[in-house]
């Protein structure tokens, strides 16, 4: 696999755009399941009701990979997540997520050779203000036992 050629062709180009509606019940269940106790995350009646910051990590692009990106065989899993918040994510305020491939690299680990793909989703509110950025590192490794 020619990583440099893939980087040249696919990095930093938006390949997906999705609109996300944020539901208050989902926010409450997300927060309670994580162990949040602050009412601003668990009580829809709270004046500052909002999603926990890691809610930004849950949004998924419609396309997993850019069109034309070669299929990499193996078991894909999340290897990491980073969420940066500029403003709170609030139920009732839809967000538009635009996703691009941010990095590609190879390494070896306890499970053998691995390919890492870092996807970056930038989330915007209806006024076009960037609310958050969510990075997902996907690792593709040989299936266990092989």
């Amino acid at each position: 696999m020619d990583i440099e050629a893939l980087k040249e062709e696919f990095l930093h180009k938006d390949f997906d755009e999705q609109t996300f509606e944020i539901d208050a019940d989902d926010v409450v269940n997300f927060a309670l399941a994580c162990g949040e106790v602050a009412p601003r995350y668990t009580d829809p009646g709270h004046p500052d009701f909002q999603a926990p910051p890691t809610f930004a990590s849950s949004f998924q692009a419609g396309r997993r990979m850019p069109e034309g990106f070669p299929k990499i065989p193996g078991l894909g899993m999340d290897a990491g997540k980073a969420a940066s918040l500029k403003y709170p994510i609030r139920p009732g305020v839809p967000l538009v997520g635009r996703t691009h491939l941010h990095d590609i690299y190879l390494k070896t680990g306890r499970s053998g050779p691995m390919t890492f793909l870092v996807m970056r989703m930038e989330l915007y509110d209806p006024d076009g203000v960037q609310v958050a950025t969510a990075d997902t590192s996907v690792v593709i490794r040989e299936r266990p036992g092989k």
Binding site: C34, V37, A38, P53, D78, K81
Partner: peptide
Amino acid sequence: GIMSQGFLAAMIHRWAPESRIEKVDT
């Protein structure tokens, strides 16, 4: 993984209830 990240954020909010997480990187 995002639930583990959520547990970590909840720990921070339990410790500092009015804090705002600007970035969490796991």
